[in-house]
């Protein structure tokens, strides 16, 4: 095992740790599209928060192509796909008593979403 020396630490500061993939993948959704988060209950790793499952939101931003963490951590490869910021109204998530204009934006991979 390599000793952690000054050079290793300095490379941490400069090395991009991001997982953006420079791949030309056709996006399935575009801003403005209505989508529903899948109601999946994996025992493995996922970045789909429980509170968003089975809820309908609107695509706000297409962040570009990233590997799917669910797949990578379970040894199923990168499965590169678009990551979107999806806006859910507070009322969709928390019911009619929530303030009507409030919302939560959640970053969700294509694998988590179905068209509505």
């Amino acid at each position: 095992m390599r000793t952690v020396d000054l050079e290793v630490v300095r490379s941490l500061y400069k090395l991009p740790g991001a997982v953006r993939m420079k791949l030309d993948v056709v996006p399935k959704f575009k801003p403005g599209d209505r989508v529903k988060a899948r109601n999946i209950h994996t025992s493995g790793h996922t970045r789909l928060p429980r509170y968003a499952r089975d809820k309908v939101g609107i695509i706000q931003l297409d962040h570009g192509v990233f590997h799917l963490p669910d797949a990578r951590v379970s040894g199923q490869g990168d499965q590169p796909q678009h990551l979107y910021s999806v806006r859910f109204s507070a009322r969709e998530l928390w019911g009619a008593e929530a303030p009507c204009k409030d919302s939560i934006n959640i970053d969700l991979w294509e694998n988590y979403l179905d068209s509505v």
């Binding site: 970045r47 962040h63 990233f66 910021s85 303030p99 409030d102 939560i104 959640i106 970053d107």
Partner: peptide
């Protein structure tokens, strides 16, 4: 304000 739109951003992914 009650009229102000509140937007929460969940940084649950890579951004």
């Amino acid at each position: 304000g009650a009229d102000t739109e509140l937007r929460v951003w969940d940084s649950n992914a890579e951004v």
